[in-house]
Design a protein around this nucleic acid. Structure first.
Lengths: 117, 117
DNA sequence: CAGCATCCAGAAGGATACTG
DNA sequence: CAGTATCCTTCTGGATGCTG
């Protein structure tokens, strides 16, 4: 007798992972990752406006959820690469679709500028 | 000579709408909305854990982006309903897909609990 | 019933300096 | 180059009480 996951339920564990989805920086980093390995500095340049601190934190969170894997080549100067896991690649398809929707619907979304509170 | 929207660019206006996407409460409210009209109290009950303040704020933001429409029946006691616009329904498809992914991949995501910082 | 105003604790995140 | 540490500001959002 086990209930299926349901994000609308406050107590459902899926809420925890939704937080990962509903994070601006996670979405952008996932979107920036291609199939090959990517380095810290590369991602810093690719994701406009992200800080070193946030990038590191985001990558750690994504790695903890096993969406990306981290490989430290142990050289000096350091050479560390990040790569999407198969699960991460599956997730990236969702993210890309969402982002494509936003970019594609910019004309419709314009005209009604969102409040800034 | 106009560039296409690109969320990876810090200055792109699409970033503003991405914030709407990358919001836990927006995703849950959109997900909770069916095709018919929905009332405040109904949404409060359906979206577990949301407060009155946040629900109102979220609905206002979604309305400002013309994803939902607000209809005040002008009666007393007040009767106000919210409804997805066609644009909102299109968006809901994306959201549902994303949420289905999260719920469907719970088994894979478990095992690697995300950090709480 | 819908929603606004106020207060406030905690989280997010930017800037900067430093280290192996 | 990759990452940590510290400080500090801004934003998020919960709680409560009030109004037409």
């Amino acid at each position: 007798m086990e209930l299926p996951p349901n994000v609308l339920s406050q107590s459902c564990a899926s809420r925890r992972y939704l937080a990962l989805v509903a994070s601006k920086w996670s979405l952008l980093v996932i979107n920036a990752l291609d199939d090959g390995p990517a380095r810290n500095s590369f991602l810093m340049r690719k994701v406009g406006g992200i800080s070193q601190k946030i990038l590191t934190q985001t990558l750690r969170d994504l790695a903890a959820a096993s969406l990306v894997s981290r490989e430290d080549h142990g050289t000096l100067p350091p050479h560390v690469t990040y790569r999407l896991t198969p699960l991460g690649q599956s997730f990236r398809r969702e993210v890309r679709s969402l982002i494509a929707w936003v970019e594609g619907n910019m004309p419709a979304l314009r005209g009604a500028e969102p409040d800034q509170h």
